[in-house]
């Protein structure tokens, strides 16, 4: 197995495209190394992206935040500005594994690992995040919900590397939240996850919203019907009920070692309601 530490995104893309065998990006390694340990993958090339300057930092731009692909979840939690603007996104990243994992794992890795239960992804979808992709020839930007195509598969082409994830500029009176259900209080994979991002008008009526669910379908889901259920409301009981109904209706889960269809479907509605309430309170500035 070869190990390379390129210093530019393009160099990384070229290395991966040029590999005849199996090539993998190594960011935090918290998923990849587990798969290597279990011999589920046996890479011929690892491209460690942690020495690429463009991937190493969180930047606050006029257009929003740009989070480099090699930035760890812990570093996101330490960025007060990011945390203040996108508390739900940061919380979702900070739910991935233990402190040990936090210090290594990245949201780009969480996305590219393409698990239906990835914690960061519903929050990123709710936030309307975009993914900056660098290929050997060209760059492109893609909506985060377009990246995962199925369990373990993405729309990235061979040689394409995620350089950063960007979060849009935040209007005033906005809030987001992510909640997940796990049997244990820590160190678990989401049985259900729900992310909500919303913006209020001056009368505290929800002006716009995005709702996303995790672990209830082959991919994390953007649920426009759930957003519609709460837009134009102050999140009253009726709106919350419609929100839960829309979420449950969007679920297409499986029975597996982590949960049942019945449980996931029901709890998806419960968590979406709770996340919406939390996002609403945050948008109100409470």
């Amino acid at each position: 197995m070869k190990y390379q530490t390129p210093s530019t995104s393009k160099e990384a893309a070229v290395l991966i495209q040029g590999e005849r065998g199996q090539a993998f990006v190594l960011a935090g390694g918290t998923d990849l190394m587990v798969r290597m340990k279990g011999r589920f993958v046996e890479p011929d090339l690892l491209v460690d992206i942690k020495q690429i300057p463009a991937m190493q930092s969180i930047k606050k731009l006029a257009t929003g935040f740009r989070i480099g692909a090699a930035v760890s979840a812990a570093e996101m939690g330490e960025n007060t500005s990011l945390k203040k603007t996108w508390p739900g996104v940061v919380e979702s990243a900070n739910l991935i594994g233990s402190d040990q994992i936090q210090n290594r794992c990245t949201i780009a890795g969480n996305l590219c690992n393409a698990s239906p239960a990835a914690d960061a992804v519903p929050a990123l979808i709710a936030a309307g995040a975009k993914v900056n992709v660098v290929g050997p020839q060209r760059r492109r930007t893609v909506a985060v919900e377009k990246v995962i195509t199925g369990p373990g598969t993405t729309s990235l082409r061979k040689g394409e590397v995620v350089e950063a994830i960007t979060l849009p500029k935040r209007p005033p009176k906005s809030g987001d939240a992510y909640l997940r259900f796990t049997p244990r209080s820590e160190m678990d994979i989401a049985v259900v996850g729900a992310g909500v991002s919303l913006t209020l008008d001056s009368n505290l009526v929800i002006k716009s919203a995005r709702v996303a669910l995790g672990a209830v379908a082959p991919t994390p889901l953007l649920v426009p019907a759930a957003a519609q259920a709460i837009v134009g409301t102050k999140l009253n009981k009726a709106a919350l009920n419609l929100l839960a109904q829309a979420c449950c209706a969007a679920c297409n889960p499986i029975d597996d070692k982590r949960g049942t269809i019945e449980f996931r479907t029901e709890v998806a509605g419960v968590l979406a309601q709770r996340a919406a309430k939390m996002a609403y309170q945050r948008a109100r500035g409470k």
Partner: peptide
């Protein structure tokens, strides 16, 4: 200085 699992670091 950062806490990690050495089984997940090359």
């Amino acid at each position: 200085g950062r806490l990690v699992c050495s089984c997940l670091v090359l």
